[in-house]
Design a protein around this nucleic acid. Structure first.
Length: 216
DNA sequence: TAGTGTCG
DNA sequence: ACAC
């Protein structure tokens, strides 16, 4: 049978962030232990590493990937790669558990049959941040973006399609899932500098999982 | 321009 | 908030 892992939070209404985007509060909570185990396994195969922007500046998050495609950044630019530049091996497999979580979350926002082929994992420690940007390295923008928050709370910066629009600040908590697609697919977004704190499971860090359909 | 530094 |  199809498990009821989502029975606790899967039924709550999304908080609207736009016409085709929303926040699912606590959506991933029923899976938290399994998600944390999966992340540990991924990091054993594909270690956390620091990436650099094309301008040569270090990003403040630590990054790894799982799935067919992994997001990578260096002097050459932003792109998806099939092999981990650090190990030369393919990225770890995307856990079925994560695939199902993403599919279910996307479905809640009206995006049916979402199939992630890329999962970017970003680890934030206090002081880390992510500047406003668009997710535009994927081959098509037809599929939505699904973003899972674990660990310390963060202020999500939710902007418009134009960079000059002032972003809203939305607190994201452990277990929250944000989905955006359609007319909201190219919205600028980011994460404000992470405040100090300790999470019961993750300690002084926040891990964000971004699930995307990057390839064909 | 997924960055930092500077100015109201 | 904005310039680069």
């Amino acid at each position: 049978m199809q498990h009821d892992l989502f029975s606790t939070n899967g039924g709550s209404e999304p908080i609207s962030l736009g016409a085709q985007s929303g926040l699912l509060r606590g959506f991933a909570l029923p899976l938290q232990d399994q998600l944390l185990d999966a992340i540990q396994d991924i990091a054993l195969e594909a270690p956390w590493r620091q990436l650099f922007t094309p301008g040569g500046k270090p990003m403040s998050v630590r990054t790894t990937n799982c799935g067919t495609w992994g997001w990578h950044s260096d002097r050459q630019g932003y792109r998806y790669v099939a092999h981990d530049p650090h190990t030369g091996k393919p990225w770890p497999q995307l856990p079925e558990l994560l695939q199902q979580l993403a599919r279910r979350a996307a479905s809640q926002l009206g995006f049916s049959d979402f199939e992630a082929d890329a999962c970017l994992l970003n680890c934030y420690e206090p002081g880390a941040q992510m500047g406003l940007h668009q997710d535009r390295d994927e081959q098509s923008f037809a599929a939505p973006i699904v973003s899972v928050s674990l660990g310390l709370p963060a202020q999500f910066l939710w902007g418009g399609t134009q960079r000059n629009e002032r972003p809203a600040r939305i607190e994201l908590l452990h277990g929250d899932v944000v989905v955006w697609g359609g007319v909201d697919r190219l919205r600028f977004h980011g994460v404000a500098k992470l405040a100090a704190g300790k999470h019961p499971q993750l300690g002084a860090q926040r891990i964000n999982l971004t699930l995307r359909h990057a390839g064909n």
